[in-house]
Design a protein around this nucleic acid. Sequence first.
DNA 1: CAGATAAGTGCAGTCACTGCAAAGATGCGT
DNA 2: ACGCATCTTTGCAGTGACTGCACTTATCTG
Lengths: 215, 215
Amino acid sequence: MRIVKVMSAMGASSSSPLRERKKRATRSALKRSAVGLVAARGLAAVTVEEIASGADVSSRTFFNYFPTKEDAVIGWDPTVLAEMIDGLRLRPGDEPGPAALRAMLLAVFSAFDADHRDLLERLRVIRSDPHLVAHHVLRWGETERQLVGALAERRGTDPATDHYASLVVATTLAASRTAMMSWCDKEGRVPLADELASHLDVLGTGLAEPQERLL
Amino acid sequence: MRIVKVMSAMGASSSSPLRERKKRATRSALKRSAVGLVAARGLAAVTVEEIASGADVSSRTFFNYFPTKEDAVIGWDPTVLAEMIDGLRLRPGDEPGPAALRAMLLAVFSAFDADHRDLLERLRVIRSDPHLVAHHVLRWGETERQLVGALAERRGTDPATDHYASLVVATTLAASRTAMMSWCDKEGRVPLADELASHLDVLGTGLAEPQERLL
DNA sequence: CAGATAAGTGCAGTCACTGCAAAGATGCGT
DNA sequence: ACGCATCTTTGCAGTGACTGCACTTATCTG
């Protein structure tokens, strides 16, 4: 009994499938409503109330899922961040940082590929509005900070002074972002993870210019 | 008569000194009020009304100077952007793009150094809040787009397809931002322009690691 | 000094976002 | 099948950012 209480108190979210499914459905309905409306009319011309009613929930409920209007459009999901951290922790401890990051990101990006079309449209919408680009960068910045922490932990260093860790994470995530954008330019004709891999390859060579690739 | 009208219609801001001085004073009072208050209590705990009354104007007037609360803190000033564009245009046409950008930025950053202490405090405040960092990036993004346009114009290319121009501007501005932050870390013991110069030097060598410099 | 122009301000309104408390849905033990 | 604990949804009231409009006041310009 005590144990059950503690588990749920920890917000383990291991709730039963029905509730989970409903939440996922609502979240994804909100995302789709947001992206669709913003793609059609632009961010400023769309209100949270419209997004919410497009997903058949109240606007108050919207804010139970996303802290800001922009987050619904960019599809911000803290669980993805958690997956990244966990993924890093599961890599063998003797693996070099960049390799561990690469492996983890390739796995996460492969999972993204399930939503293929949604992701493509979302990236297009994001790129079309400076506000959304800024918000996107903001959220990646949070990711960056946490990953630096996780990587420093792996290496047994202090994240505040381990500039190597910061450099590795920052450049790798920057390459991840450019990979997403270039994948978006190619309209998804290549798997996202492949695009990421080739960008990381270039990064790995110290940014040597490849043969007729990338923009 | 016609000429005067056109000149003022163009927003040439060549108005008489008193008005100009007052506007500058108000703008700078608002910036100082904003940075001071936010440094003390954090962005979220400060209202526009407080910032405005700290500068002895109404909150409505605040919005005649800055489009958002954040802009007052980061000190966003569209005239600086205009100076950059003009500065680029004044460089000799046969100068390579990176060199022209470098010369222009060094000049602009030297001018920044007049406000020395203010800039230092402002950068510290910006770094302390992810919201402000994001807004900072947003505004530099606008700068980036315009500079790509200006550089493409110099080169007689289409800004949408001149990826070389985009790369040069993006990396150069990124180096400018890291220069500002590292200058901030060094607490202004070095002139800003010198810091920028050394960052651009490193960039110019293709990011070779220098002797015991930078973070 | 008179008329043009620009800056400052008050007011009313929209909308993002939050805390609170009630109501409805779901899960679980018995 | 029932009842209780827990979670989700929702309405309501409130704060605060930001805008358009109309009006006053200050600064030019001739």
